[in-house]
Design a protein around this nucleic acid. Structure first.
Lengths: 83, 83
DNA sequence: CATATTTATACGACTTGGCGTATATTATTA
DNA sequence: TAATAATATACGCCAAGTCGTATAAATATG
């Protein structure tokens, strides 16, 4: 259930899943965070230029938190990038 | 040992702890990531405008990963901000 | 299938990050 | 304490994020 993320893309995927679980649209989340729907779109799309401010505004609105830890075993997506 | 982070500041603190554990200077980490020492300084200082690109470059170089999960009980620092 | 909803993309304007470079400040160590 | 190392800050420059607004594209719903 908890998501592991090592890339902006994976962060975006996790946020999107969470948003949908909460039955919110990007516009809804934008209202909660004072961010544009377009900005939420970029965040969920994994744009690496997105700012931490934007990320944490969304995290707060979605009631999420990070755990930061040393990397565990190789993840599926990492392995795929080898080929 | 694992760090919980809900703000850019907390992320910065965790990265700094990790860097020091690995006996690296900001300059060392900058070399590993092709980022300036000044940029690492900003990241560790919790500047909310820092980009995800920068964060994840550092995460990779420090061999860290995120776990994203619903917020658990109130954390000490959050409680402090109530007063 | 038609319509409504949701999400992605576009434009100009403004703001800010990260760059190279340099220096000031702080912390470490001899 | 003096010298050294590490970190924070500054300046001009360029690239890019976010803004408001709008629309195109994709998805969901009747």
């Amino acid at each position: 259930m908890d998501q592991i993320a090592r890339t902006p893309k994976q962060i975006g995927d996790a946020l999107r899943r969470r948003r949908r679980t909460l039955k919110l649209t990007q516009k809804d989340l934008g209202a909660k965070t004072s961010l544009r729907q377009a900005t939420i779109s970029g965040l969920e799309g994994g744009e690496p230029g997105t700012q931490l401010r934007t990320l944490f505004d969304a995290m707060t609105a979605l009631n999420l938190e990070f755990v930061i830890r040393p990397r565990t075993k190789a993840q599926a997506e990492d392995i795929e990038t080898l080929f």
